[in-house]
Nucleic acid binder design. Structure first.
Ligand SMILES: [Mn+2]
Ligand SMILES: [Mn+2]
Ligand SMILES: [Zn+2]
Ligand SMILES: [Zn+2]
Lengths: 122, 122
DNA sequence: AAAAAAATGCGACTCAGTCGCAAATAAGGA
DNA sequence: TCCTTATTTGCGACTGAGTCGCATTTTTTT
């Protein structure tokens, strides 16, 4: 099991709850919110958030907030931006975007607006 | 009173609550959260949010969310990005930043990371 | 002045997220 | 294996933002 080792590599015990949680994010093609995950969640809400925090602190997960008050989580990979559509609420990873700010240290970029589809339909 | 006319120009009745609310944002130098405003708020929470929504729909206010689950509001002026520091939670307006995404329509950009001060202290 | 329309306050509610605590599970040592 | 201790989990209570219905107040119209 790849995921189990990945967790243990960060000095975190690979409990059933934690493995199943990280499995969800490994299979996902895009960032997920608690609302997205809830239906298939096997653990309690408190345990969910405790483990999410644990993963984030360990550098296994990333989180960011959309403009409609939802918090999204995804596997931490290479740094990249996210686009969130105001109309259809879709979340997209934006890879080819290079932004630097002198003296600032950028960790996350969220762009809000209209996605391709919703821009066309205007 | 400039503010009263500004509100009426958008076909919104300039009630006392609304004028006082927009006055707060006019005097502010940076985006404000509900938590920031609450102490000096004269109106009920529900009225506050109803009027905020009204202003946003009318294009008088902008809103965006930080990564620490706070929603910020500010007077809508020229389009610009915002930087939110993970450490000191400061919010800064970033003016000289030009980002375009083909086929997307950008309305808001939020950058998370470490601000100048917090970058130095590392 | 009376009637209609709009804005407000109040209370109840939802929902994400947090926390303390007790039960359950895992780890370690004898 | 049995006992002890540390860690994790579930549960319940709680907080705080935001929403909603409804009655009251304020404003507008006739
Ligand atoms: Mn992504
Ligand atoms: Mn700004
Ligand atoms: Zn869209
Ligand atoms: Zn800072």
């Amino acid at each position: 099991m790849d995921i189990k080792k990945k967790i243990e590599k960060h000095n975190i015990k690979a409990t059933i709850a934690r493995v199943s949680l990280l499995e969800i994010f490994s299979q996902a093609q895009k960032p997920l919110s608690y609302e997205d995950i809830k239906p298939e969640l096997k653990m309690d809400k408190a345990t969910f958030y405790r483990n999410i925090s644990l993963f984030i602190d360990a550098g296994l997960l990333n989180s960011f907030e959309s403009n409609d008050k939802k918090r999204y989580f995804e596997l931490k990979s290479h740094p990249h931006a996210h686009f969130i559509c105001r109309v259809c609420n879709s979340v997209e990873c934006i890879d080819n975007l290079n932004i630097t700010l002198q003296e600032y240290q950028i960790e996350n970029i969220i762009i809000n607006g209209l996605c391709k589809q919703c821009t066309v339909r205007k």
